[in-house]
Design a protein around this nucleic acid. Sequence first.
DNA 1: GGCCGGCTTACATGTACCTGACGATTGCTG
DNA 2: CAGCAATCGTCAGGTACATGTAAGCCGGCC
Lengths: 214, 214
Amino acid sequence: MAEALTAALLQRGLTVDHAASLDEAEAYMAAVDHAAILLDLGLPDGDGLAWLRRRRASGETRPVLALTARGSVEARVRGLHDGADDYIVKPFDADELHARLLAVLRRQGGYLGVSLTCARLTFDVETRTVRVGETVLTLSTRETELLELLLRRAGNVVPKRVVEDQLFGAGGDQGSKNAVEVYVHRLRKRLDEAGTGARIDTVRGVGYLLRNAA
Amino acid sequence: MAEALTAALLQRGLTVDHAASLDEAEAYMAAVDHAAILLDLGLPDGDGLAWLRRRRASGETRPVLALTARGSVEARVRGLHDGADDYIVKPFDADELHARLLAVLRRQGGYLGVSLTCARLTFDVETRTVRVGETVLTLSTRETELLELLLRRAGNVVPKRVVEDQLFGAGGDQGSKNAVEVYVHRLRKRLDEAGTGARIDTVRGVGYLLRNAA
DNA sequence: GGCCGGCTTACATGTACCTGACGATTGCTG
DNA sequence: CAGCAATCGTCAGGTACATGTAAGCCGGCC
């Protein structure tokens, strides 16, 4: 069931670490700043809710969604009181779990809008912020616009004309305006220095293409 | 059913305003800064989810719990996608609704004595006091408001506009208003002098971001 | 070689932001 | 009520960064 769940969430664009026990989970949680935690209350090595209570008491703030087969009202109330942000009873639908997960993340801040991604890059359309993994990457306005444009067509070539029209007015200016090339250059430099794992390829005579470097 | 629900929540120590229609609800919501909203999707005067989508689009941030008789997975997924923080199917148990409400409030930060933290900083929402480790740090009202705002979205960018709207009225005043910058400056100074280990980053053209300096 | 498209660096201008200071207001105290 | 301190919002001067243009460079292709 964990495998199926992991696959379902990966397919929906999330990154997942899977722990088979509470001990293993603690190891993961110490190492990675996860956005949220799915807690199966049927784990073999101890009471999941007691564990959750302890973690909350010692300052754990990450959202926790409890998964369980025990569907009684009392169980649900207890789970929520013990610090769960949502309580989902098996069997559940992957779409609903995904939706509830997004709702919690949205509330927690960050995942407000749709986010575009490529390699380790994520772009939050709502706040117009770029992240490399967890850390925020600050770009100038123009650089952000360019990156968004490329991200929306990630893996596909974006004609140079389109970039010009989108970044600067559609006004067909003349002369030696190589602004696009300059910004592509600046963006490349930033993506590279930040180790994003994303890269911009040039398609001569046509335009540019954002893709995963690996 | 609304009466029974109101009574049940009052009995559990919460304060409730009851609106019989979306129009009435808007009137209440404009006047009072509610901690959360229970939205019955079966209201006579219009589609509750469409209304929710519109409110979210125009900046409504209060948590919303959707109540409905339609229990299909698709309906639940749509409700959560449209901006609901939880989706509860009738008939439901008052205890569970209460527990889910508390879970959402807890997550939203404050309202329940849970304190917000970042680095060595802690903020008790109940008493509106700021601490650095054990010692209390006294800030002015505006500084406290700003810190709370940043703390609620710690690690995420808070757009400058949001700060303006939250600190001063949403009334779009004009003129040379760099008040936000001034308060950010003052707060930075205080956080720095007190050795909080927290720091405010500037994201040019977007807003500010509170994070652990280390 | 000479042309063409793209790359790279440099630079002048504008804009966003920072920061110290000032008058106005508020609240407290003698 | 006068006097004082803290806080508030505004402003002016300074700084750092973003922007768009230009000029020199590189590599492919006829």
